[in-house]
Write a protein that binds this DNA or RNA. Sequence first.
DNA 1: GAACAATGCATCGAATTTCAATGTATTTTG
DNA 2: CAAAATACATTGAAATTCGATGCATTGTTC
Lengths: 110, 110
Amino acid sequence: MNITDLYKGSLEAIVLQLIRQQGEMYGYELTQKAREISGGHLKITEGTLYPLLHKLEAEGTLSSELKPYGNRMRKYYRLTKAGVQEQEKASVSLQEYIGHLQQFLNPKLA
Amino acid sequence: MNITDLYKGSLEAIVLQLIRQQGEMYGYELTQKAREISGGHLKITEGTLYPLLHKLEAEGTLSSELKPYGNRMRKYYRLTKAGVQEQEKASVSLQEYIGHLQQFLNPKLA
DNA sequence: GAACAATGCATCGAATTTCAATGTATTTTG
DNA sequence: CAAAATACATTGAAATTCGATGCATTGTTC
């Protein structure tokens, strides 16, 4: 069991959370920000991130816009209106989840 | 995104944690305890739990003992010596993970 | 006492998720 | 100028997870 494995179920919630905070983000930026905040533990691979972003866009949670940055392109993602709702639900779920994890670790505080 | 999904990556750590606290536990008991502590959110299905327990036993993290309870059998699992080490690592990882999740939710406290 | 829910083990196939590898191209750094 | 970083993406394999199913016992309810 690797600490990296723990993040598996929470990746989507984290991505929505980061985009919400920053307003808009591009893929590579998400991988860097996630790594930074997690103290290096959450290394989102491309094979995980891009399919996830595409799925979220297909579902109508995210919208994207290509913007040139010098000679290369960045694909910026932001939350749609529906996405904001989704993110808010995800945020509540995350907080509950954290609370439950703490219960598991420290069942005395029942 | 369902709150249940969040638990995916942390299932193994939670199972080890519960067995550590209780000394020994059988499969069905684990599903009930997990559900209870998570306020009903973590419903570990049999198709998930039993393969996981078997894997952990095959790896030498858990050992099992069949004990009769009335006319039916319960298969009790406990941590091996190696399993205790594993569990301690998992516990530390879980705490770090929780800390990181809180960072994602509340990045001000950097 | 018959039916149904709960307890207790388990497997199986499908679906989903995730990783590692690979590909292309530009920009920055040593 | 070569290597590392930036930036997009796909693909196939591996791992995980779910839902359905199966079997047997025990407890509850009508």
